[in-house]
């Protein structure tokens, strides 16, 4: 039996048959530049800076994103808003997207949800310098893909659109969310090691 199989190459013919039948199955690829995959809201594409509905910049220049960035691609130059000594904003904001690893830590770190990631993934340019995003470019992206950015924040559980009331702020730029009193004002349980415990770990 084995010899007959070898002589008539039945296994090879079986393979040929399978491949031939495969020809009549529908294709499973996309004609990419013309047809694109739908992209989920949580997709981490190019960075953008958002504005509030009244047009003011969300960013307060706190540099937390700079601290959170694992690839050190963010540079924030913070400054006071002229004439308002207590209010700060980012005078300059640089983001080297060619070094960005698209981890999204900066958006997590942002206390005012000024940073959001869009669904843009076609970032190729002819000049590498164009990949050095400055404040203007980031706000432009945020304006262009405002819906994407908002959807991103919602998808990542950072903003459901109601967290930061803008009414009655007066001169202040933002207000922290009201403390959740449903659980009797208790803080949620500490997850992981405390700072002291971490230090003990290091000493060990």
């Amino acid at each position: 039996m084995g010899l007959i199989k070898t002589v008539f190459m039945t296994e090879l013919l079986m393979g040929l048959k399978i491949v031939f039948m495969q020809m009549f199955k529908p294709y499973c690829t996309l004609q990419y530049p013309h047809v694109k995959h739908p992209i989920p809201d949580g997709y981490r594409g190019l960075m953008s800076l958002l504005r509030y509905e009244d047009g003011s910049e969300r960013c307060v220049g706190c540099s937390l994103c700079e601290a959170a960035c694992p690839s050190n691609c963010i540079k924030v130059v913070s400054d006071e808003v002229p004439g308002q000594p207590l209010v700060r904003y980012a005078r300059e904001y640089y983001l080297d997207i060619s070094r960005c690893v698209f981890c999204g830590f900066c958006t997590e770190a942002c206390p005012v949800d000024a940073l959001a990631m869009t669904k843009v993934y076609e970032a190729s340019v002819y000049d590498r310098r164009e990949l050095m995003f400055d404040k203007r470019k980031l706000y432009a992206l945020g304006e262009q893909f405002l819906e994407d950015g908002k959807a991103y924040l919602v998808a990542h559980g950072m903003d459901d659109g109601t967290l930061y009331p803008r009414e009655g702020l007066g001169d202040n730029r933002y207000a922290f969310p009201p403390v959740d009193t449903a659980h009797g004002g208790e803080q949620p349980e500490q997850i992981g090691l405390t700072r002291e415990a971490l230090e003990v770990e290091e000493i060990r």
Binding site: F20, Q22, Y27
Partner: peptide
């Protein structure tokens, strides 16, 4: 083209 069809693709379009 034929290879593409065998691999569930469309080939040059």
């Amino acid at each position: 083209k034929v290879l593409s069809f065998m691999q569930d693709r469309l080939g040059p379009m």
